[in-house]
Design a protein around this nucleic acid. Structure first.
Lengths: 204, 204, 204, 204
DNA sequence: GATGAATGAGCCTTCATTCAT
DNA sequence: CATGAATGAAGGCTCATTCAT
């Protein structure tokens, strides 16, 4: 069957979103290409026309993930005002997306997959590295800004504060993930409380 | 061939520790029974003499994990003095073990494996649940104690403080994990800083 | 590699006939999927493309067996004339097929495989039941007809005559089977004699 | 544990009867040595002390089978009187044993196991051959005797009558077997009717 | 662009057999 | 005599990947 370029694009997009959904639900390893193809309504052969294989799909998704993460982050941090408030807003925004946007959550969780972490041929490493570095840069900047501004404490080196913030964020993300597996510590995440406590810890 | 009862116990122990090590290094899914057996210096058949299969090994390891986790935790919390100091000490102890004791770290990380989280036949769920519940109980108690004692803030419900603490701990654990994959935010975890910030956030 | 639909059908048919042949020669249990695939000139993977596994192949073969058995039987019984003669003709026809058509013989013998008889998950049972019931119905009818017609003895209930006939048929079939294993009672089956004796026993 | 000679004999006998029972219930192939040993209350090692392996057990059982079969047969045929009556009695006796003596039935059925029929290394063949030949000799003799006596028809060569009789017997045995698998033609075997019909067919 | 067919490597599991104790 | 531990050869099945059409 000959298809137009637009139809092909649709197929490609369907494959990607099907893959992300299934990766999120069942994990990268447990998701077969067959599953992805079926969910996208095409055959495995079609998948191989659009992508070079499983790894290629993952890379595409990692790219998208970086984009959507920083899109949310930049928007939240890019407002005017006290940097600490903006950090608070950013945390809130990230967590809200995690809670409400399943695509966003699936994309974030991709990062914690062993299949990606233990990247034997270093295919994915670059994409993760890139995110990490940008994350560090963005947050370091705003923390520095907050110190200058006077709202963020000055008695800790920025990397330490960054680490505190990063760990907390990661931990909350994991809680969301554990919630869907029924293994979370508490029956739900109280966004406001966690953020308030984090912000207080950073406060000058 | 191992013949005596003691030698068999050694074989069994070797299999378990080989499994834990390999699960930690390469992930549960990527670890083949063949790998475990070879690392333990026996054949796959021997593995099946001691265990019912991969799942059975995982369950044994999860049991051990619970034991070692609470062993560390109880010891750290079980001293006299200000509950907040004891929490601080417990965090320190857990993180130190994570840093220095690779067996401990591998055991802790087992919990975040998708193969275990997405427990289709609910074989592992009970063991995770058990840990989670005990963790909640232990930490809730000491937080309450701290409130009574006057060193922990009283303006947040205990579950919220617990969640904050839990997320931070999980996040730091993940950082250790990411460090070994080369994907951590920072080149190392500064234990003291993270703990100090966390404790300050809880302080009355 | 077979690519077109027709070629795929050929592959499928080859797999089935190879399976039947090997089941007949070596038994169901002793036949490996590898053997079947190799005999059909394809890989084991191809086998799994066409069938769900060994059990699925068996079911297909059982279906075919029912068809070919009743095809032979109906044709032989469906002529005009004395029912007893028609029974005689049917026995003759079945035995001749057993002697000359190795595919027919293998298909018939499938039924006596323990792997099929001791059908733990009741997958095959339905197919056997179906054949048995139809066999009983067909032969009961013609025996009744023969009684009416006056050529078959009336002093025995039909089920008893049916049983006599069935046992004799089964026994002769087993003889053919034993012949190929070199364990038969006699160096060959004398069709005419056995049938004549059976028919005389039934005669009014 | 050191055991006396008598105890060892008991173990051996237990192993044999456990094996026969399990072979009868689940088939030779599906019965594991582990099953046999467990049913006999010993370990697999013990089994290997008494026997050389699965094949050795089968051979022992085949020997016993021959003995018990001819014991029943000889006793029934060895009376005085009309040979045809004695054949009738023998059939009755064999069928009665099949119906009532599970050990006898299991022993008889052993013969139809593929594992034994398709004896690749010809280990069992001799034992089967021996039975077959003796069976042929015994029945040929009594048929000849019946012809002489005048009660058995003279218009068929003895081998043909023998074959008729043998097939019928085998067929009835199979019916007993199928009964326990739930696949028999009729809900039970009517011994008297089948025998009467067979005898009439042979009658002079 | 897409499909259906086929490959082949790899994994889990079973089980007869061996053997030190 | 008997046990428990261990071996190793298969066998069934899965799945990423290839490719003619």
């Amino acid at each position: 069957m000959r298809r137009t370029k637009e139809e092909a694009e649709v197929t490609r997009a369907n494959l990607l979103s099907a893959a992300l959904k299934l990766f999120g639900e069942n994990g990268v390893t447990a998701t077969r290409l067959e599953d992805i193809a079926r969910a996208a309504g095409v055959s495995r052969g079609a998948l191989y026309w659009h992508f070079d294989g499983k790894g290629d799909i993952i890379i595409e998704l990692l790219k998208t993930r970086t984009d959507s993460f920083f899109h949310v982050l930049d928007e939240a941090l890019g407002v005017a005002g006290d940097p600490l408030d903006r950090i608070s807003g950013a945390l809130n925004s990230l967590m809200r997306h995690h809670e409400n946007d399943v695509v966003f959550r699936d994309a974030m969780m991709l990062e914690f997959e062993r299949a990606i972490l233990d990247d034997r041929d270093n295919r994915f490493h670059a994409y993760l590295k890139q995110t990490t570095e940008r994350y560090v840069k963005v947050f370091s900047a705003i923390i520095e800004e907050g110190k200058q501004y006077g709202s963020i404490r000055d008695d800790f080196p920025t990397p330490y504060l960054l680490q505190f913030l990063g760990a907390l964020t990661t931990g909350v993300f994991m809680e969301y993930r554990l919630l869907s597996s029924g293994n979370a510590l508490t029956p739900g995440v109280n966004r406001d409380a966690v953020i308030k406590l984090a912000i207080e810890a950073l406060k000058a």
